[in-house]
Design a protein around this nucleic acid. Structure first.
Lengths: 131, 131
DNA sequence: CTATTCAGACTACAGATGTAGTCATAACGC
DNA sequence: GCGTTATGACTACATCTGTAGTCTGAATAG
């Protein structure tokens, strides 16, 4: 997985369209191209060629693995959702908040992006962190 | 400023290179193109034409205003840093965390991206929010 | 066995982005 | 007033991203 990790932190990033495909496969994999399209094409307004392109690019980026199944491939993520999401979060914090999380939190609080459930959850996490 | 706000939330986004230019002008404005270059060119490895292009694109996007000063322009942000940063934060949360902030917080906590100062600050903010 | 199908491989193109070069001219300096 | 200069306007090109079309042939179906 080390090589895969390099891909994530290197210059090849997963684009937003590619992320939508990854999300579908994180939820359920392995899947064929047609199955992925069933999952995302209606909601994204894509057609099958689009999905196939994105899958192909993700394979080239090392984010997906392929397993032949008859004449088609079964696609499986090599890049974990957790890894991707963590990288993107950290990147935003570093890029816009000087690497500090508190200003981000303040920003979200100010935008009323924090629900009561969020607050309760964060408090619980803070308590755990103090142990 | 309403029109400007539309620009931010519309399809025209500020790219990363453009953001670097904005950051320089948020720190100090108005500035001329040459002054902006003095600020960012060495650190980014850019030359003057690059900065000029980015400034020009930002003006076209409505993020910067120009004021003639002799044969050159003084550039001033129309898009506030606060607005931009808030939009990007919200966008990440919506895109990767289903619109919920707590999972983002948990992610940052897990990545050891939270300093003790961050935690203290967040606790303070939580207390204020409960008033 | 044959006809059909479907999915990967390959291609296309527009727009966005990153980085930079060229040129004309109004402003500047002497 | 004249020569110089700096800067905006315009252009260039490579890469990335978004979206999709075409084609071939191996797998599939009958």
């Amino acid at each position: 997985m080390t090589a895969n990790k390099d891909k994530e932190t290197g210059s090849e990033r997963i684009s937003e369209a590619e992320y939508a495909v990854m999300e579908a496969l994180w939820q359920r994999s392995p899947q064929t191209a047609a199955e992925v399209c069933d999952t995302v094409c209606e909601e994204r307004g894509w057609s099958m060629p689009t999905v196939k392109t994105l899958l192909s690019r993700l394979v080239a980026k090392g984010a997906l693995a392929t397993e032949p199944d008859g004449r088609r491939f079964l696609y499986t993520p090599l890049l974990e959702r957790h890894t991707y999401v963590g990288g993107e979060s950290k990147r935003l914090v570093q890029r816009l908040f000087g690497g500090r999380a508190a200003p981000l939190f303040a920003q979200l609080a100010e935008n009323e992006a924090l629900t009561e459930e969020d607050i309760a959850e964060i408090e619980r996490l803070l308590r755990e962190m103090k142990k």
